[in-house]
Nucleic acid binder design. Sequence first.
DNA 1: AAGTGGTCTAGACCACTAT
DNA 2: TAGTGGTCTAGACCACTTT
Lengths: 260, 260
Amino acid sequence: MTRKSKTPPALRNDRIDRSSYEPAYAQLANLLRHHMATGVFHPGDQLPSESQLVGRYGVSPMTVRRAINLLADQGVISTAQGRGTFVRGVELGAATFGFKELQNLFSNKEQTQVKLLEARVRAADDRTARKLNLVSGQRVIYLRRLLCIDNQPAFYHREYLVYDPARPVVESEMEVTSLQGLFSGVGETVLKRGDLSVEATILNAEEARLLGATSPAAAFCIEHVFYDLKDAPISWGWFVCHSSHLRFTTSVGVPRVQPT
Amino acid sequence: MTRKSKTPPALRNDRIDRSSYEPAYAQLANLLRHHMATGVFHPGDQLPSESQLVGRYGVSPMTVRRAINLLADQGVISTAQGRGTFVRGVELGAATFGFKELQNLFSNKEQTQVKLLEARVRAADDRTARKLNLVSGQRVIYLRRLLCIDNQPAFYHREYLVYDPARPVVESEMEVTSLQGLFSGVGETVLKRGDLSVEATILNAEEARLLGATSPAAAFCIEHVFYDLKDAPISWGWFVCHSSHLRFTTSVGVPRVQPT
DNA sequence: AAGTGGTCTAGACCACTAT
DNA sequence: TAGTGGTCTAGACCACTTT
């Protein structure tokens, strides 16, 4: 059912508080979000036009536009030029997940330890050479690390680094990719870009042993390739994490709103 | 190494094309992104101030601001009030991934089939009752579905729906949650909100049989709870998908840019 | 005090959709 | 043609950081 009345009900006494520290555009976005959450607007409904909102809330067009863009970015509404702005329902395709859960694991707890299990130079096999854009047999640095949280092994990390004496010192690169600041963004980085992929996998015997899990156990595998400033691959590796330590969560549709 | 020269090098003859269909703010964002990608600005560097950009590119402050916000939203740069705008390096915590891959699976191929394996009313067990905010023993609808792509089983879906004769027709809710439009956003929805979580798991015997996999096999489990317009849970269920069918990918840091 | 990012105004013009 | 969203201007004022 779509509303056709030109003046939607129950846009009652909601106003922008100009003395608030919360910016006007954010207040307006929250008001609209609240109206969607409380059923004033239903999925599929057309929102009041921008000029109507300008008049109703006494703000400038740019401010309205910014609130609209904010909600559209969050996937709560959708806009169509010449037609109007509409409330979106639930669309799974719009869901996005972040690595916040990972970030928290590492930043909040100071009990994070990195144990270096192995570090040595070896010749790249075919697969490694392909990933790092080398020729097979070139020398690479092979690292194995165990990331512990509260002395519990959580992540098992294997990584190959290109080994080039002409490059800036290798230790520093090891430092860089040692994940200390990678998650939280602390510390500066020589790396410009990274590609990530997340897969589901089963721990093999070695992984299960290191992570203290009983085989077979489900796990996430997070593969990464990092590139330097010239877009040359510099690091290829993957984290393995027992499924009990990691879960990605998110919401779709109109966000819940605390009753005011 | 941080630059301190007040006039960064090599902002040469890049200009905004006012006759282009591409909006000025997008052009500016792309120019800046290109300069970051080609090493004019390095991770950690401070970008020219907004007023400098206004002068350099001959656009209004709002337009510069919009380009800056765009890049900041993408995680490429970060802004600090009173200090400046800076190029971000690689930060894993900033990574996000979506269901685009899923969306494509369902929208691109028209060979998608949904086979209903079972649909019956039963009493809710403790866990189901908790998830759907019912009391144990209340009646729910239990559904089992197999989603096939190109006649290959890809997803196994189990779902519990609240069964309330006073509600709008149940068939329509089954229709709604039948995933036809859930991913691509086609069709309208009675659902207002949904919570999702992604876990790694191992297929049990039944799941492996239905999905044509050999046990043990790694898989993603996507759990969902959907809420109606009054924020009451209406559906709880989960998709199981063999890991070979699904992989989430994303990038962090300064996006690659095609040489111009 | 100077410089920076953050917000906001009060319009303008354009492209698109509907009638 | 009227109404819609999309873009843009040329400033203003504020809050914050640094010197």
